[in-house]
Design a protein around this nucleic acid. Structure first.
Length: 574
RNA sequence: CGGGGAGUGGCGCAGUCCGGUAGCGCAGGGCGUUUGGGACGCCAAGGUCGCAGGUUCGAAUCCUGUCUCCCCGACCA
């Protein structure tokens, strides 16, 4: 490809709409343009990257035995009413009407449609198992789209749905897809981790998320360096303390703590560590009464875990100040279990605490020397906090650490949640009707591009992994329009590399060298060849890898072999 | 939806407090000089100041309404 026959539009300054690195770089490099909130045009350069990601996914899904199809983006309301999700899905579902005022939606996911396909086609156990997938544009009317294509409303997703005669076969396919995803993200050249996940709203049991590791990731992942344990912090179990509760040594005492509202202020005021304090959080209970949750001062409430408690109303809502005032005679910042007669649920870590500090249920007062059993009744103990680095791994094999990740894939065992609702029956060997077991497997294709950048960039711009770069190699001629030998060499090299199936970009724009270098680096091309009069006299051209500190000269005669060898080891042919 | 911020040429911004008819850098056009790390000079071009009302002799600037976008929280690929 010659730059003059392609479309490159880079910016020196990032548009002010962008905050995170990948978003800024994607806009600066001209990969995407925003049309409206959460909706982007993929410019030619960006589309090349997106297509490479799609190709790898498609090749590996095919290798894994899945079969590609393409379902409609627009779906009739009837199907969604049948699965009861027309009401359940909420405002994230973009609902539209046709000219006859019939209800439709723009598909945020395709369980309903695929189920409709399968129930019409599949009648017998002989036709199972099946795994259908598609790569398609979805629309989810996110409350707050952000970070460019990282959390767009319109995005490209690979979604797959598998159907089985029994749970055992579903588990086999689940494992197969787990392995397929592992191959996909490995081939994409990304550092990633598969983590046990909460099943969220889609439901079902058995689920893993695939996260691209990046410090800027939105998700926290707890993992054990000593074993293969990894789980989303939402899910990772905080184990029971192994140490017994010490006996009380201090008397219960009420102390004035004027103006102290937070744990940090409390620690500073009383000169204690946060681990010796207990924080009190009040949420609405299932029966409407407030429920007091207790956590060690240095721990954080996990809303998902709290939501699973029978005593707590779903979704978890913090009680209003009025409710709290009525129940505790005090305001948030001074709350505690002493003298409170309602339901108290304490995190397991609190089990092992003695002589701690907690709110006194009187504004601007705290109690010190508080002890469970002596000063207030034994509460219900449960796991309601986020794990922290240093916690014991739930598999008992070491100590947890925490890193951040971007969720790019998610696999689920749906079991019969949809197949039962949508009546996905088949006849088994004995001629009896059974309900299919179902799995689903998603990959955020557009998100992968942003995640790859989030993981691979420097101050000059993007550094694309070889597997998904828009162009493998950039040829930058110095004096293309002036020096016939430079032009001829550049053209020939371009043609020869292209003939080898290498994606080569010849920057034949009439730009100054600095501008060309800057652009080629910004758009993340991993290899660069510079052809100049100076080097050609010696029969040499210059090579520089995108991450290399220094360029080096190589004989012209060896260029092709060098480039080929560097690119072919990452070749995307399956 | 709650909280915060912003809409001025393609991009980044100043001007708004204190009303007087719009400016800077970059990009883009022409000409010339340049050509191994985002060149320089000259010339020309480009703006309903988000939109709608209002106040005023006069509004980017003040008032009211409205739309859009971004950031922080609950959702998700």
């Amino acid at each position: 490809m010659r730059a003059t026959q392609f479309f490159i539009s880079t910016l020196k300054e990032a548009p002010s709409e962008a905050e995170v690195t990948s978003h800024k770089l994607m806009l600066r490099a001209g990969l995407i343009k925003r049309l409206t909130s959460g909706v982007y045009t993929w410019m030619p350069l960006g589309l090349r990257v997106l297509r490479k990601v799609e190709t790898i996914i498609r090749e590996e899904m095919n290798r894994g035995g899945a079969i590609e199809l393409l379902m409609p983006a627009v779906q009739p309301a009837e199907l969604w009413q049948e699965s009861t999700r027309w009401e359940q899905y909420g405002p994230e579902l973009l609902r539209i009407k046709d000219r006859h005022q019939r209800d439709f939606c723009f598909g945020p996911t395709h369980e309903e449609v695929i189920s409709d396909v399968v129930r019409r086609e599949i009648k017998s156990y002989r036709q199972l198992p099946l795994n259908f997938y598609q790569i398609q544009t979805k629309f989810r009317d996110e409350i707050r789209p952000r970070f460019g294509v990282m959390r767009g409303r319109e995005f490209v997703m690979k979604d797959a749905y598998s159907f089985h005669v029994d749970h055992e076969d579903l588990q086999r396919e689940y494992r197969n897809m787990y392995d397929t995803y592992t191959r996909i993200f490995t081939r994409l050249g990304l550092k990633f981790r598969a983590v046990a996940a909460d099943t969220g709203s889609i439901g079902g049991t058995g689920s893993h998320e695939f996260h691209v590791l990046a410090d800027s990731g939105e998700d926290a992942i707890a993992y054990c360096p000593q074993s293969d344990y990894a789980a989303n912090v939402e899910l990772a179990e905080a184990m029971k303390p192994t140490t017994p509760r010490p006996a009380p040594t201090q008397p219960l005492k009420k102390v004035g703590t004027p103006g102290v509202k937070t744990i940090a202020e409390l620690c500073a005021f009383l000169k204690v560590t946060a681990a010796h304090t207990v924080k009190a959080v009040v949420v609405d209970g299932a029966n409407g009464d407030p429920v007091l949750l207790l956590l060690r001062g240095d721990h954080e409430l996990n809303m998902i875990k709290a939501g699973k408690l029978a005593q707590v109303r779903q979704p978890v809502t913090f009680s209003s100040v009025e409710t709290i005032r009525a129940a505790f005679n005090a305001e948030p910042g001074s709350l505690g279990p002493v003298g409170f007669s309602g339901t108290v649920i304490a995190d397991r870590a609190v089990t092992a605490m003695a002589d701690f500090v907690v709110g006194a249920n009187e504004n601007d007062h705290h109690c010190t020397g508080v002890n469970i059993g002596r000063d207030f009744a034994e509460p219900i103990f449960a796991d309601i906090r986020n794990v922290v680095p240093g916690d014991a791994s739930p598999d008992g094999k070491g100590i947890l650490d925490i890193c951040r990740g971007i969720e790019v894939g998610h696999i689920f065992q749906l079991r019969t949640k949809y197949s039962a609702a949508l009546n996905l029956g088949f006849l088994d060997e004995s001629g009896k009707t059974q309900i299919m077991e179902m799995g689903c497997y998603g990959i955020g294709v557009t998100r992968i591009v942003a995640a790859a950048i989030e993981q691979n960039y420097d101050e000059r711009g993007i550094i694309f992994p070889q597997a998904i770069t828009a162009f493998d190699v950039a040829i930058v001629p110095i004096g293309y329009g002036k020096n016939a030998q430079v032009k001829e060499t550049a053209d020939r090299l371009h043609d020869e590399l292209a003939a080898e199936g290498i994606d080569v970009l010849l920057d034949n724009r009439d730009e100054r060298p600095g501008a060309m270098f800057a652009d080629m680096e910004l758009i993340g091309i991993p290899h660069r060849l510079v052809i100049g009069e100076r080097g050609l006299k010696e029969g040499q051209i210059e090579y520089k890898g995108r991450r290399d500190a220094q360029a080096r000269n190589i004989p012209l005669t060896e260029v092709k072999i060098l480039i080929k060898s560097m690119i072919c080891e990452h070749s995307s042919t399956a």
